[in-house]
Amino acid sequence: MIYKFTTETFSSICDELATRDADLAAIIQAHGYPPMWRRPNTFETLVHIILEQQVSLASALSALNKLRERIQEITPARVLLLTDEEMKACYFSRQKMAYTKYLAEALLGGHLRLDELEHLPDDEIRQKLTALKGIGNWTVDVYLMFVLQRADVFPIGDLAAVNAFKRVKGLPKDTPREVFLTMSQHWQPYRTVATMLLWHYYLSTPRGK
């Protein structure tokens, strides 16, 4: 079954999670509801997520803006016209340059259609996207959560979410990933919204506390 959330249901899902988990309730009480982060289902969005891999959000956005400044509209065809030097001037690493061009080729060649992904179960989407060079589980998690509004994703590879989880639950630094996956099952089928609450806490709370 495909679980989704919408702008109409987002707050009520937060409220339901708060009734199940006192720590999530405390986040809402202290900081209000989180933003419902969302992005359009486009090539540009996937490029943006690729750029966000293992760097700060500010660095990724800077590279995306530089690319947009150079080609105006970020499309597969326009990206493939760029030389490696031109992409390097847009702050793309050699790896991310390759990943972006590979994605562009997959879309232009018809091997991947983003509109078709909207109707597939999460597991099938993950299978299709991770078959592409440079797209791993974290990238798919962000795509499912931000773009398709799939409600039941916990991004175990996201450091901000995991660190917020540790702080909210008082878990030790060396907590194994299996513990997070097991504990997050308590939030099913709304683990995405619970994660957005964790991110909200992470962004709203000084790191030292």
Rank of each mutant, 00 (worst) to 15 (best):
L107V: 15
Q72G: 07
H48K: 12
T100S: 14
L61K: 11
A18H: 12
I2A: 06
A25H: 13
T139E: 02
D122W: 01
I2M: 08
F10Q: 08
Y99I: 11
M97D: 15
P176C: 03
Q72F: 12
I2Q: 08
H200Y: 00
Y202I: 07
R191H: 03
I50W: 04
Y201L: 12
M97G: 10
F92P: 11
L120T: 15
G157P: 12
C90F: 09
S204D: 03
I71E: 08
A104Y: 03
K96W: 06
Y143L: 01
C14K: 12
D115T: 15
R20Q: 00
I13E: 01
E116S: 13
A151R: 04
D21R: 11
T175M: 02
Y33A: 08
L148P: 13
L198K: 10
D15Q: 15
V147L: 09
Y3I: 09
A30Y: 08
Y202D: 05
T9F: 00
S11Y: 14
W138S: 12
Q149H: 15
C90P: 11
L159T: 15
P155S: 02
D23K: 15
K96D: 09
M183T: 09
P76F: 01
P172R: 09
Y99V: 09
T9W: 08
P76Q: 08
N41M: 05
S12E: 05
E118M: 02
Y3Q: 08
A18Y: 09
P121N: 06
T42D: 01
L171F: 02
D84G: 15
E118Q: 12
L103N: 09
Y102A: 14
H31W: 11
A25M: 03
Y201H: 15
H31D: 02
G32S: 02
S184M: 07
N137E: 13
A104T: 04
K173D: 05
I27M: 01
T75L: 04
A104V: 06
T6G: 06
A58I: 15
E69D: 06
L103V: 13
E124W: 06
L107P: 10
I50H: 11
P172L: 00
K101H: 07
A194Q: 04
Q185W: 01
Y201G: 12
L103H: 12
R20Y: 00
Q72Y: 10
N41K: 07
P172G: 04
H31I: 11
L171I: 07
N137T: 11
D15A: 14
A30N: 08
T42W: 03
V153Y: 04
A26F: 04
L117I: 13
L129Q: 14
P206Y: 00
V140H: 07
H186I: 10
A25C: 07
A161D: 01
A98E: 01
L120A: 08
I71H: 06
I156A: 12
L64D: 06
W199Q: 10
E73T: 15
S93F: 03
H200L: 00
L81S: 11
T139P: 05
R207H: 03
Q185N: 14
E118F: 00
S12A: 13
D158T: 13
L117T: 14
